[in-house]
Simulated assay, not measured.
Amino acid sequence: MSTSQSGDRDRDEEGRARNARPRDGLGRPLPYGTPGVGRQPEGVVRTPAETVTEAQALLDAGRPFHAHEVFEDAWKSGPDSERALWRAMAQVAVGLTHAARGNARGGARLLRRGAEALAAWDGEAPGGLNAVSVAQWARRLAARVDRDATPVDAASCSPRLRGTA
């Protein structure tokens, strides 16, 4: 995708905003010309198992913002029956992102919202995802973030997406 700058916003050929600025490991924009962390490609269609595996690797590396983009791809490209699940996982990853950035209030709110949606999931989740365990993890982290109100280390507190979180 090529982008052009229009004012202070990058836009694609259709005029949609596309921020091409480099980003740090938590997805925060850096000044142009600064080395950043590679972005996740948009619109990648993965199997549920590939989604879980790739997102877990990103979470383990302390890159929950990037894991959120993987879940967002699954949410947007997957079957209607799975969209609520992948959307919930994207919310959990964004909640962890905000908690790691020091936004305790926003992080806890998104972690709880994602946990509620995961708890509502009925049946076995695709790709080996343990939705119940991730929901429990998200609630525990939200309580910790509320209590401590300090940034968390995203890599050391990332959930286990398969098995128990």
Results as ranks from 00 to 15, higher is better:
residue 61 A to Y: 12
residue 54 E to M: 07
residue 130 N to S: 12
residue 69 E to W: 07
residue 96 L to T: 09
residue 31 P to V: 03
residue 118 L to H: 08
residue 55 A to E: 02
residue 115 A to Y: 10
residue 157 C to M: 14
residue 42 E to D: 12
residue 52 V to M: 15
residue 83 R to C: 00
residue 61 A to P: 08
residue 77 S to D: 12
residue 77 S to M: 08
residue 71 F to T: 13
residue 19 N to V: 01
residue 53 T to I: 03
residue 118 L to Y: 11
residue 94 V to M: 12
residue 16 R to P: 00
residue 46 R to G: 02
residue 41 P to D: 13
residue 65 F to Y: 15
residue 101 R to H: 05
residue 8 D to K: 13
residue 75 W to L: 07
residue 100 A to N: 11
residue 97 T to A: 09
residue 148 D to A: 06
residue 139 R to Y: 08
residue 64 P to N: 11
residue 83 R to N: 06
residue 59 L to Y: 14
residue 78 G to L: 06
residue 132 V to L: 09
residue 75 W to T: 04
residue 9 R to E: 08
residue 40 Q to S: 05
residue 21 R to E: 03
residue 60 D to I: 01
residue 67 A to N: 08
residue 77 S to P: 01
residue 138 A to Y: 15
residue 20 A to F: 12
residue 126 P to S: 09
residue 27 G to F: 07
residue 76 K to C: 00
residue 157 C to R: 14
residue 58 L to T: 13
residue 101 R to G: 03
residue 139 R to L: 03
residue 10 D to T: 00
residue 30 L to I: 01
residue 147 R to I: 00
residue 157 C to I: 12
residue 156 S to M: 07
residue 105 R to Y: 05
residue 17 A to N: 01
residue 74 A to F: 09
residue 33 G to W: 11
residue 117 A to P: 02
residue 41 P to T: 05
residue 66 H to W: 12
residue 38 G to I: 02
residue 132 V to N: 06
residue 107 G to V: 10
residue 27 G to K: 05
residue 120 A to K: 15
residue 41 P to V: 06
residue 15 G to S: 03
residue 92 V to K: 08
residue 37 V to I: 10
residue 105 R to W: 04
residue 114 G to D: 09
residue 146 D to H: 11
residue 139 R to M: 04
residue 136 Q to V: 07
residue 158 S to T: 11
residue 150 T to A: 03
residue 1 M to G: 12
residue 28 R to S: 09
residue 118 L to R: 12
residue 36 G to K: 06
residue 84 A to F: 10
residue 56 Q to C: 01
residue 8 D to G: 04
residue 9 R to S: 02
residue 160 R to V: 03
residue 1 M to N: 15
residue 131 A to R: 09
residue 127 G to L: 09
residue 128 G to P: 11
residue 116 E to W: 06
residue 143 A to Q: 14
residue 124 E to A: 14
residue 137 W to H: 07
residue 96 L to H: 12
residue 6 S to K: 07
residue 42 E to A: 13
residue 45 V to I: 08
residue 108 A to T: 02
residue 163 G to E: 03
residue 124 E to K: 12
residue 103 N to P: 05
residue 140 R to H: 05
residue 50 E to Q: 13
residue 25 G to R: 15
residue 73 D to R: 11
residue 4 S to C: 03
residue 94 V to S: 09
residue 112 R to P: 12
residue 68 H to T: 00
residue 15 G to V: 12
residue 71 F to R: 14
residue 144 R to P: 00
residue 125 A to Q: 07
residue 68 H to L: 01
residue 72 E to P: 06
residue 19 N to D: 13
residue 152 V to K: 06
residue 67 A to P: 14
residue 115 A to D: 14
residue 33 G to K: 00
residue 102 G to T: 13
residue 23 R to N: 01
residue 30 L to E: 00
residue 68 H to Y: 02
residue 91 Q to S: 04
residue 12 D to T: 13
residue 154 A to T: 11
residue 90 A to Q: 15
residue 161 L to K: 04
residue 82 E to Q: 13
residue 23 R to W: 01
residue 70 V to L: 12
